[in-house]
């Protein structure tokens, strides 16, 4: 049933394929292909975040857009203040905006992580449908707040006139920006792999399989889940910051439940709990959008059909379909 080398092979193909596409696109003078590949990398990263909660921890969060959007707004707001030379606050001490990605990313992760700490602290006391609804409710609260808060564009969103900067890299060059997103994606996937195999990962997976068992050996599932939820949110928040820079724009739609649903679709299409599942899922999603989206505005109908097939007949998603059932050592 198990074919680990096959899964590794498929993962390698996915990673290599995603890397090659922008260069092919550039050689064919089709810069839009680079944008598509970058979107795959960024959305996959958001999915990798959710996959830690959903796949490893069994936490069906329907509110990950909150973290994605918060990450995006951190990037947008910092850039907005920096580009307008307006400090964010003056007292008790002055805080200025920045266009430095290396500062924006940790802050985006910090804000998403803190939000997840709060949301998780309340929502992780529930499970099943209640957990889904509470995470959704929290995310919608942030969504409506963003819509109704005029300082940062409200419903119209917040433009980032110039893409934020990274030392030594011209981020306005599409390939360079793609490579930034791609390298981050692979680094985070490697990190998640390490986490999943650690003691923490063992406890997290045990919490998903049987939290009664985990408690009985003396490990409180709540604490484990809360930390996983926070890490998961930080990853998705980082993806949100990258997305804002990719689009040079952030608006409340990044916070909406549609976005939460899309992130979940990446994970399910690719394979819940599979290391490269979100990459496969996001790639499939973007592929569908660009093929069928050009033909009809109802392209989601096709995606829905595929999702239905996956849920009914291929629970392991694309990765599971190719590499077989998941295995734990």
């Amino acid at each position: 049933m198990v074919n680990l080398s096959r899964e590794n092979g498929f993962n390698f193909l996915l990673a290599a394929g995603l890397l090659i596409i922008p260069f092919i696109a550039q050689s064919m003078d089709e810069p839009f292909g680079i944008t598509l590949a970058t979107r795959v990398a960024v959305l996959a990263l958001a999915g990798v975040g959710l996959n830690l909660a959903l796949g490893s921890g069994g936490l069906v969060s329907f509110g990950h857009a909150a973290f994605f959007g918060l990450g995006g707004y951190v990037a947008g707001i910092l850039a907005h203040h920096a580009l307008n030379y307006e400090p964010i606050m003056l007292s008790p001490f002055e805080i200025n905006g920045t266009t430095e990605m290396l500062i924006i990313w940790p802050l985006a992760m910090l804000v998403s992580g803190l939000a997840a700490l709060l949301i998780g602290y309340f929502s992780l006391r529930t499970s099943g449908v209640y957990f889904i609804m509470i995470t959704l409710a929290f995310a919608q609260m942030i969504y409506y707040f963003a819509i109704s808060w005029p300082a940062y564009g409200g419903e119209d969103g917040l433009p980032i006139y110039l893409r934020n900067t990274f030392p030594g890299v011209n981020t306005m060059d599409p390939i360079s920006f793609f490579l930034i997103a791609y390298v981050i994606l692979l680094l985070v996937i490697a990190l998640v792999h390490v986490l999943n195999n650690s003691r923490f990962g063992a406890a997290l997976q045990a919490a998903r399989q049987n939290d009664e068992r985990l408690s009985a050996v003396g490990i409180a599932p709540f604490n484990i889940r809360l930390v996983a939820f926070v890490i998961s949110a930080m990853i998705t928040g980082l993806a949100g910051a990258l997305q804002a820079d990719l689009l040079k724009f952030v608006d409340p739609s990044a916070l909406s439940w549609h976005m939460s649903g899309e992130i979940m679709i990446f994970v399910i299409l690719g394979g819940v709990g599979r290391l490269f599942g979100p990459v496969a899922g996001a790639a499939l999603f973007i592929l569908f959008e660009s093929i069928f989206g050009g033909m009809t505005e109802y392209w989601m109908l096709f995606l829905g059909a595929v999702l239905l097939i996956v849920v009914l007949f291929a629970r392991g998603g694309l990765v599971g379909f190719i590499a077989g059932k998941a295995r734990h050592g």
Binding site: V194, N197, S198, R199, F200, G201
Partner: peptide, 10 residues
């Protein structure tokens, strides 16, 4: 502690 994130249990 189970909050050990890096060493592989395998």
């Amino acid at each position: 502690s189970s909050f050990k994130f890096f060493k592989s249990v395998q």
